Amino acid sequence: MKVIRTGAEWNPLWLKHLQNTHQIGFVPTMGALHEGHLDLVKKSISQTDVTVVSIFVNPTQFNNPEDFAKYPVTVDADLEKLAKAGVDYVFLPSVDAIYPTETHLKFDFGDLERVLEGQFRPGHFNGVGIVVSKLFHLIRPHVAFFGQKDLQQVGIIKRLVRDLSFDLSLEIVPTRREADGLAMSSRNMRLKPEERKQALILFQSLEKAKSDLLTGKNWLEIRNQIEVAFQKTPLAKLEYFELIHPESFQSYSQFDPNGKSSICVAAFIGEIRLIDNMPVIP
């Protein structure tokens, strides 16, 4: 496994693989890797000839400076995991390598920008769009791999690829969960023991809401019950719990068993903000 830190280092390697007609797979991450990330890596290794993983904690997608400052950084452990998994290259750039000058460009993803994560984290998707565009231009992969846990981010990146005509395909990999159902997230390692227990309310609420919907219960009544459950959970503070179309991300006021739908949730557990989602009708 080779660690590269700049586009200039990568260019001759990319050209060599292109000349050998190798398919290049790319897994962009912010590090603090867990089994969910490694699922993306394994998928890339199985589907492409060369796998590149980036580790870059992107400052422009954090609307909360404290969240950025406390984001876990475990580079040595990450590199060990990636080497063991059989990754070919790790792109480990500095902030200056990604942002050599101040970025003045602003992305507006339209309706996706103003609901759910876009509503509660203003500027977040602009930061995501800029860094993913930069990484796509630098690495020039044939296939990029993303996790389903960040459902709205997936929608943003699909729109980015389509609207800017990036010559690559996207592979979306299902959410990896802990044995008790909690969606794997780098932020989980910041949870204290009691917070970790109470964080299960996200998964449990998704499961219950999905089950209730499929047995014919009213969505607004279900959501009210979930809101009460969060209010009774001392360390939890619910931001949203919405039934949405998984492509437009528009919220439903009632459940349509004949249309696509997913449930999305975001909540603080103590000081840690977690998100999750679950398809109801894929």
Rank of each mutant, 00 (worst) to 15 (best):
M1E: 01
K2C: 06
I4E: 00
T6S: 14
T6Q: 06
G7W: 03
A8S: 14
N11W: 08
L13E: 04
L15V: 06
H22P: 02
Q23E: 13
T29S: 02
T29A: 02
G31Q: 08
E35S: 14
G36A: 04
L40A: 07
V41W: 06
I45V: 05
S46I: 06
Q47I: 05
V52P: 03
V57F: 14
P59I: 04
Q61N: 05
P65T: 04
P65G: 05
F68V: 05
A69F: 08
K70S: 15
Y71P: 05
V73I: 14
V73D: 11
L79T: 04
K81Y: 06
K81R: 15
K81E: 08
D88M: 00
P93D: 07
S94L: 05
Y99H: 02
T101I: 12
E102C: 03
E102H: 08
T103W: 13
H104R: 14
L105K: 14
L112F: 14
E113H: 11
E117P: 15
F120S: 05
P122W: 03
G123K: 04
G129Y: 01
I139E: 14
P141S: 10
H142K: 15
F145A: 01
D150W: 02
L151P: 12
Q153N: 13
I156H: 00
I157G: 13
R162T: 04
L164G: 06
D167H: 11
L168D: 00
I172R: 12
P174D: 02
T175H: 08
R177Q: 08
A183C: 06
M184W: 03
M184I: 07
R187A: 11
R187E: 07
N188D: 06
N188V: 06
R190Y: 10
K192Y: 13
P193G: 04
E195C: 01
R196V: 06
R196D: 05
Q198C: 02
L200N: 14
I201C: 14
L202D: 11
F203D: 03
Q204R: 15
S205P: 02
S205D: 01
K208W: 13
D212S: 14
L213M: 12
L214S: 01
G216A: 10
I222G: 05
V228K: 15
F230Q: 10
Q231T: 08
K232V: 00
A236M: 09
E239G: 03
Y240I: 04
F241Y: 05
E242D: 12
E242H: 07
I244E: 07
H245W: 06
S248C: 08
S248D: 09
F249E: 00
F249R: 00
Y252D: 04
S253H: 13
N258F: 12
N258R: 12
G259S: 15
K260R: 08
S262Y: 09
I263G: 10
I263D: 11
I263M: 11
C264G: 04
C264W: 04
V265P: 09
V265E: 10
F268K: 15
I269A: 13
G270H: 09
I272C: 15
R273L: 02
N277S: 12
V280K: 11
I281Q: 14
P282V: 08
